[in-house]
Structures are given as C-alpha cells and as structure tokens.
C-alpha cells in the first residue's frame, strides 16, 4: 500500500512539476512575444521598448564596456563596506537592546518607527558631510542597513531559549564560552536574516544615491545611459543589477534554510 501511495505521490509530483514547467515556458513565451510585438508595433516611441535582440545586445554592450567591471567594483565595494559598518553598529546596539530591557524599552520603539522611513531624504546632508564621492554612498548604505540588523539582532537576543543560558551557567561556562557556545550559535539565524535584509536595502540606498550625485558606480552608469537615451544598454544594466540582487538574496535564503535543516 505504502508503495502504491508513494508511486501515486511521485506521479502527482511529476504532473505538478511538468505543469509548473509548462506554465513557466508558456508565460515566458507570451511575455516575450508581447514585448516584441509592442516593440515592433510602433505604439510607443522608438527605443522606449527596444526589441529583445536589442536588449540582449545592450547586455552584451554593457558587459563588453571596459569600464563596467570597474564601476561594478565601486558599487560592490560601497555596498560591502556599508553592510559591514551597518552590521558592526547594528549587532553591537542590537545585543545591548536585546540584553538590557531598560534600554530596549526606551530606544527600540523609536528604532522600530524610524526603520521604515525613507532614508534617501538624508542624502543631501550626507553629501555635505562626506562629499559627492564614495563616502556619502557608503554612509547612505550604512544608515539603510543599520535598522534591519539592529531590530533583527535585538529580537533574536530576546528569543534565545533561557534554558540554554541556564545550562551554560550551571556548567560554570566563562563569558567567552557562553558567547561562543550559546549566544553566537543561537543568534546565527537572526543575524543572517538581518544581513539579508540589510543587503537589500543597502543596495537600493547605494544605487539610488549613485543615480542622484555620483561620478562612478552602476547607478551613475544607469543615469549616463538615460541621459544618452541609450535604452537597450539601460535595460541591460538594470537587468544585470536585478539578477545580481536576486542571486545574493537567494544565497542568503539558502544559508538560512541550511541552518534551519
């Protein structure tokens, strides 16, 4: 019976997988056909919706541009540094808030409501403080990434099973042993989750800042293509950025799933 049930389940799964695959293929085909149809119809201004082949050529053109990898390096460096700075401050403050209810009561509601405010409005000040170079973009990313990390870590600290802490104390674990054997392993998930969110918001913060005032970076390239009205390359670079952001988000997701398993 069990074998029959398993076989039926397998069949159902196979049907599910094939139906999913068919829907995906049909969806992609329909979207691409519609896109190509609109591009060739002349309904919209020429080049606003370029043909698929033009976009593919645009992606190739962007990748073949000798400055692309340098600009991508600048943006990646800014994002990485801002996430590191946001994580360093966010984890420190998060641990304090998570372990000291008095501070949490005063500051956490403020952080909770400040977290979803539009950080880009601080950019004019960051330009005054750090100039139009990379400093202001890193600061923008750091402010953006601080909030998800601090809130995630503070909440994670409070959700550590108190039994683990009591067991550690009953074994007379030193502060270092408690940190490495109890707190850090228990905090991995909220920290990784905070970093995942921080990466997303920091990427947006840095790229938007680059589109406003910058002399380098991928955001600057987007604006440059826009000013040159080079739409295929603009589509190309935006698609490359999207693919990268989705890939990194997927990697963080994998890390969390592996930990849960």
């Amino acid at each position: 019976m069990a074998n029959i049930a398993n076989t039926n389940e397998l069949k159902a799964n196979k049907t599910g997988v094939s139906a999913k695959l068919i829907v995906r293929i049909v969806s992609i085909t329909v979207v691409l056909a519609l896109w190509e149809g609109i591009a060739r119809s002349g309904l919209l201004y020429k080049d606003v919706v370029p043909t698929i082949s033009a976009i593919l050529y645009g992606i190739w053109e962007v990748l073949a541009d000798p400055t692309f990898f340098r600009q991508a390096g600048v943006t990646l460096g800014e994002i990485t540094l801002s996430v590191i700075l946001g994580a360093a401050t966010g984890i420190t403050v998060g641990i304090i808030l998570g372990s000291r209810p008095f501070f949490a009561k005063i500051f956490e509601p403020l952080l909770h409501y400040l977290a979803p405010t539009p950080k880009i409005i601080f950019f004019p000040l960051l330009i005054m403080w750090f100039g139009i170079g990379e400093g202001s973009k890193i600061a923008m990313g750091t402010i953006s990434s601080f909030f998800p990390i601090v809130l995630s870590v503070a909440s994670g600290m409070r959700h550590i099973n108190p039994v683990y802490v009591r067991v550690g104390r009953s074994f007379r674990a030193t502060a270092w042993q408690q940190a490495t054997k109890i707190y850090i392993p228990a905090m991995r998930d909220p920290v990784v989750n905070g970093l995942r969110l921080a990466f997303g918001v920091s990427t947006i913060g840095v790229l938007l800042a680059e589109t406003k005032f910058a002399q380098s970076g991928l955001g600057f390239m987007v604006t440059r293509y826009y000013q040159q009205f080079n739409m295929p390359s603009m589509y190309g670079i935006v698609l490359i950025i999207f693919a990268f952001a989705i890939f990194v988000n997927w990697l963080f997701g994998k890390l969390i799933v592996e930990e849960t398993q």
Partner: peptide, 18 residues
Amino acid sequence: SALAAAPIVLLYPLFLVV
C-alpha cells in the same frame, strides 16, 4: 518573491521615459 528582492526603484529613469 524574486521581484521583492530586486531594486525595482532603480527603474525610475525608464518610467520617466515612458
């Protein structure tokens, strides 16, 4: 879900054109 991870706001120059 992937759309949620993409920096969609970066498309603003495109929508400016449209």
